[in-house]
C-alpha cells in the first residue's frame, strides 16, 4: 500500500497518464490560480470592505457586473474541486476496507455535486429583489 500511496505525492514520470497523474497536476494548476482568486476575494471582503458591509445590497451592486459572477463561479468551482480532491486523498490514506472506501468516495461525490449545484444556482440565478427559495418554501408550507 505504501508504494501506491507514495505515488500520489511524487511527481509523475514524463508521459504518465491515469487519474492520479491528472489529479497531481490538477492540484498544482488549480492551486496556483486559487492563490490569486482566494486572496483577492479575502482582501475585497475583509480589507477594502468590512464583513458588516457585505449586505444583500452589496451583493446586488457587485453582481450587476457579470465579471464578479464569473469570478465567483471560478473560485467556487476550483476551490470545491481542489478541496474535495484533497479530502479524497486523505480518505485514500486512512480508510481501509473496500466497503468503507466505496461508501466514502460515494459520499464525497454526492457532497461535491450538491454543494457545487447550490453555489452555482445562487451565483447564476441571483436577481436583486427576487427570493426564489423564500417563494418555494412559502408555497410548500401553504400547500393543503
Amino acid at each position: 500500500m505504501a508504494a501506491t500511496r507514495a505515488s500520489v505525492y511524487a511527481k509523475p514520470a514524463a508521459g504518465a497518464t491515469g487519474f492520479e497523474t491528472f489529479s497531481w497536476y490538477f492540484f498544482r494548476i488549480t492551486g496556483l490560480l486559487l492563490i490569486f482568486l482566494a486572496i483577492i476575494h479575502l482582501v475585497i471582503m475583509h480589507v477594502s470592505n468590512d464583513v458588516s458591509e457585505t449586505s444583500y445590497q452589496f451583493v446586488a451592486n457587485r453582481y450587476a457586473n457579470p465579471f464578479w459572477r464569473v469570478y465567483d463561479l471560478l473560485l467556487l468551482t476550483l476551490a470545491l474541486l481542489h478541496g474535495m480532491n484533497g479530502l479524497r486523498v486523505i480518505v485514500d490514506d486512512y480508510v481501509r476496507g473496500r466497503g468503507w472506501r466505496l461508501a466514502w468516495m460515494s459520499f464525497l461525490g454526492v457532497v461535491t455535486a450538491t454543494f457545487w449545484l447550490m453555489g452555482t444556482l445562487t451565483i447564476v440565478s441571483f436577481h436583486a429583489g427576487s427570493a426564489p427559495l423564500g417563494t418555494f418554501f412559502h408555497t410548500l408550507l401553504h400547500l393543503k
Binding site: 449586505s55 444583500y56 445590497q57 451583493v59 467556487l76 476551490a79 470545491l80 478541496g83 474535495m84 484533497g86 479530502l87 486523505i90 457532497v111 454543494f115 447550490m118 453555489g119 444556482l121 445562487t122 451565483i123 440565478s125 441571483f126 429583489g129 427576487s130 427570493a131 426564489p132 427559495l133 423564500g134 418554501f137
Partner: peptide, 26 residues
C-alpha cells in the same frame, strides 16, 4: 486544507440564503 474546505461548505450554505431575499440574508 480540511479547515478551509469545511468553511467553504458553510460559506456555500450562507450564500444560498441570498435566495430567501434581503431581510433574511441581512
Amino acid at each position: 486544507g480540511v479547515a478551509i474546505l469545511l468553511f467553504l461548505l458553510v460559506h456555500i450554505v450562507d450564500i444560498t440564503i441570498l435566495g430567501f431575499g434581503p431581510t433574511v440574508y441581512n
